[in-house]
Design a binder for these strands. Sequence first.
DNA 1: GAGTGGTCTAGACCACGCA
DNA 2: GCGTGGTCTAGACCACTCT
Lengths: 239, 239
Amino acid sequence: MSEVIARIPHYQHLYETLRQQLLQGVYEIGSLLPSEKELQQAYNLTQPTVRQALSMLAEEGFIKKFQGKGSIVQPVPIGLGMLSIQPHHTDQLVDAAAIRTEIVQKPILKVFPADFLFVSAQPQRPYYYFERLRFVNNEVIFFEKIALPAEEVPQFHKLKLENKSLFDTLRKRYSIIVKRGEEKVWATLADEALSRMMQIKPNTPVLRLEKCIETNRPHLNIYSSLYACTDKYLLKGRF
Amino acid sequence: MSEVIARIPHYQHLYETLRQQLLQGVYEIGSLLPSEKELQQAYNLTQPTVRQALSMLAEEGFIKKFQGKGSIVQPVPIGLGMLSIQPHHTDQLVDAAAIRTEIVQKPILKVFPADFLFVSAQPQRPYYYFERLRFVNNEVIFFEKIALPAEEVPQFHKLKLENKSLFDTLRKRYSIIVKRGEEKVWATLADEALSRMMQIKPNTPVLRLEKCIETNRPHLNIYSSLYACTDKYLLKGRF
DNA sequence: GAGTGGTCTAGACCACGCA
DNA sequence: GCGTGGTCTAGACCACTCT
C-alpha cells in the first residue's frame, strides 16, 4: 500500500510514529493509547509486530501496559543518559530553552583521554573529544568532557553543538540511541583550577559523575566526565 | 512432557535458567551462548519464545547479540537500581562480603515520609520505612532511608535485612524485579547531625542521591534517600 | 460477554559473519 | 554456502478488566 523507501522495520516505523505523537502531546497523559487491535488495523500489521513497538515504548516509560485494560500514556520520560536540571525545593525542571551551552573545547581528534575513569576497549582508535559548560541564568551548572569514537560519527566536527542536546543531535543526525550505561559518582571539593573554570569559590562541594554510555551500535560507546555545581540546582536522571 | 506445576511462562523459565547459569559462570565471558536453534531444540520451544528470553538477557547486559554470529557472554552486570562500591584509583569493586550492613531503624509502618524528594502517588497507603548504615572496613560508606508500600510485601518486618542486598531479597522472596527509575543527585556538606551519624568530620563533602525505583509490579515503587561519604570510595551504578 | 493485553506455535524469508 | 540472528505472518488460546 504505502511505498517503503528505506529498509525500516515495520515495528520501528510504528514505534517512531507513536513516539513522535507522544512527544507532541497528541495523546493526553493518563488516557488510553489505541488498542493493539486498532493499531493492527490502522497500520495493517499483525499482533506481534504491534506488540514489539508498544513494548519498546513501555520499556522507555512512555506508556504503561495493563492487561485487560490497555496502554496508559505516561508523562514524557527523561531520555536515558541525559540529565535534567531542577532547582532544590521545587519539582519543576529547568526548561531546556533556559539552558545555555558553551563549547569550551571544540571537537578535536585524539586517542582516548587518559584521565577518564572508564577505559575504552580500543583506546587507540581516533576519538572526538570536546568540552562544554552549561549555564542557567549565566551561572555555571556543569562542566563536561566528552569522548566518542570518530569513525562512527563522520563530519561530527562540523556540527553546531551550542545550545543543543547532544543525544538529540546524535539521534537525528546518526540514528544513535542510548541503550544502557554505567556511571560512577562521588562528591568532592572544587580545587583552584576548577573553581576558576566554573566561576565558583574554591572548596565548594562539587558533584563528580563519570559515565560510559552504550548505544544501539555495537562498538559505539560515549564517555562523559562531568563536574557539577549543585548548590542551587540538582541533577535528575533515569535508570 | 515436563510437569509444569506453577504457571510460569516458557520464556521466563528459560530466562531464569540462563540467568542462573550466567551468574554461576557456566559460560565463559566472551564465549558464545548456545544458538537460538539449539535452545529451541533443547527446551522444545519456537524461535520467538527463545528470542524473548534472550532479549531480556541482552536488555540487562548479560549478553550482547550479534547478527550472523551469535550471543556473546558479557561480565555479570550490576543489578539495576543497585549500587556497587569501588575505591578511587582502582577499578576493583569492593566485594559484597566485605560490606557490613547495620539496620539503624527496623522496618516500621507509617505514611509516606515527608522528607523524601520524590513523592508517592498514594502517600496515605501504609509504608514500611527503615534506615541502614553500610560499612567497609568499619568505616561508614553510606546511610540510607528506604520506604516501600507495605501491602505489596507481607511479612517484610520479619525478614533479616542485615548484610543482605535488599534487591536480592525482594527478588527471591517476592519476585520483585527493578524495571526502571529516576534519581536526583547533588553534592553538599555534612551537617552536625549527619556527621555524628556517619562518624565523619562536619563539613565533609557528601553525596546525596534520592531515587524512585519502579518494579515489575504496577503499583510498587521503592523510594530511597541516600547520604554517601565518598572520600575513599565512589558509587557505581547502571542506567 | 466483550474487549483488552499476554503467551505461543509453525512456518517463511531476509541480512549478516565467517570460512 | 552455511549457520547465525532479525523480521513478519496468520492464526490460536489464555488471563484480566470492565460493565
